[in-house]
Design a protein around this nucleic acid. Structure first.
Lengths: 111, 111
DNA sequence: TTGACATGCAAGTAATAACTTGCCTAATAT
DNA sequence: ATATTAGGCAAGTTATTACTTGCATGTCAA
């Protein structure tokens, strides 16, 4: 069963694979990489990497821009925030929940 | 490939399935439930639920206590904190990273 | 002390996910 | 112009995961 209905599901599924997590780490270390660049770090075929990147893109964790014959990949950390709100903050002890609220308030005044 | 080597992998794999996330939600709503209790909410065989709970237990998200012929299930939110540190805080903008440090400092003095 | 209840074990099936291979198109550099 | 480089598409294969069924064991209540 396990139909990937909502974004939450795509997101967790995207994070469930170590190769995809490595890709996120690579983009975190240096943004705007090409497909070939990323392939050099992964020990699998180019298509394998492409398919992982497609999943990351479906989960909105990676955005891409075509530049000539190259495709540049950028990290988008926003969905991770959603995980935090739904799965970390919610399950924390009340004390930490209070801190989460504080954090959000600070974000609003700061931005 | 995708060998489940470390705890991180078990954790993300555990969270990747909607039924398992539902189980966590159920335990969050009310802790110490029996297997049969949890089964009533899941629309699959008892064994299916057992296997999901086994994975959650392997990821240390659920702990169990045997009580007579019943098995009680308890939620352990600690591993979720690890995800936060490694995957949320790390990928946040520097401003939010600073807040994460603050949070940890507060935790130490508070506990 | 027996019958119903709560759960465990093991093997099998079906669905999904990860990965590969081969060929195709478009951009660039010489 | 043409060879090379970057990437896309589509099928097929293998591995993993989700789930089921049938039977076994321990616990409790009457």
């Amino acid at each position: 069963m396990a139909e990937p209905i909502d974004d939450t599901d795509l997101l967790f599924k995207a994070l469930a694979d170590p190769s995809r997590r490595k890709l996120l780490d690579l983009l975190h270390a240096e943004d705007g990489r090409t497909l070939n660049d990323l392939c050099e770090h992964l020990d699998m075929s180019r298509q394998g990497v492409t398919q992982h990147l497609d999943l990351l893109e479906a989960a909105h964790l990676v955005a891409t821009v075509r530049s000539g014959r190259e495709k540049l990949h950028y990290l988008n950390p926003v969905p991770l925030q959603a995980i935090y709100e739904r799965w970390i903050a919610k399950f924390e002890k009340p004390r930490l929940k209070a801190l989460s609220k504080l954090k959000r308030r600070l974000e609003q005044t700061d931005d």
